[in-house]
Structure formats: C-alpha cells, structure tokens
C-alpha cells in the first residue's frame, strides 16, 4: 500500500516537471501574468539580490542551511535506528 503511494507520488512529481522541457524554449512572459503585480515597474528592471550572489555571500547562507538540514537528518536517522533497535528487542 505505502509502496504504491510512494511510486504514485514520484510519478506525479515528474509528471509536473516534464513541461519544463517544452517551456524552456518559450518566453516566460505569459506565465508571469499569473502572479499579482507582475508588470515591470517604470524604474527599470526589478531589483534582485544579484550582487550578493556575485560577491559569493549567498553561499554562506546555503552552507548554514545545509548544515542545519544535515543535522536534522542525522537526528531523524538516529531516531529511526533507535526505534529499529527497540523493535528488535521486543521481538
């Protein structure tokens, strides 16, 4: 049962990723209209944190977030192992 759910989920995700291949060639202006307040403001292009990335500082944030993520994974994995051990003991 759970196996089926899992494979269905994966199929679903890749199904939605598939249109990417087609969408890449097109200009994405039409799609952008979906979002609110999408018109380009009069004052030139929209300001994004490009310089921060160019300076390389965004990698610091990525490193921090990845460390937290890895720590959480480690915690969950250890919990998983602990429960597995308990299951073995109670058999």
């Amino acid at each position: 049962m759970s196996k089926k759910v899992c494979s269905l989920l994966l199929f679903f995700c890749f199904w939605f990723a598939a249109p990417v291949v087609h969408a890449q060639g097109k200009d994405s202006v039409d799609i952008q209209k979906v979002w609110k307040g999408d018109r380009q403001p009069a004052g030139g292009p929209v300001e994004m944190a490009d310089r921060l990335r160019a300076d390389g500082k965004i990698y610091v944030v990525v490193a921090v977030v990845v460390i937290i993520l890895l720590g959480l994974f480690l915690y969950v994995i250890r919990l998983d192992r602990k429960i597995s051990r308990l299951e073995k003991e109670s058999k």
Binding site: C6, W35, D38, E47
Partner: peptide, 30 residues
C-alpha cells in the same frame, strides 16, 4: 531507499533553491 531519496531531494531543494536563478518580479523579489 526512499529515506535516502528524501535527503537527496531536500538537499537539492535547499542548494538549488537558494542558488538557482528565479524570475525577477516586483513585490516578491527574492
């Protein structure tokens, strides 16, 4: 296997999610 898949997917999300290029939109920005 699906736990490993979960870790790989989330690591990809966090790295590509912060470093990947995103559409530039007013109000929303980054």
């Amino acid at each position: 296997w699906w736990k490993i898949l979960c870790i790989v997917c989330l690591l990809y999300t966090f790295v590509a999610g912060f470093l990947g290029s995103v559409p530039a939109k007013p109000i929303l920005h980054e």
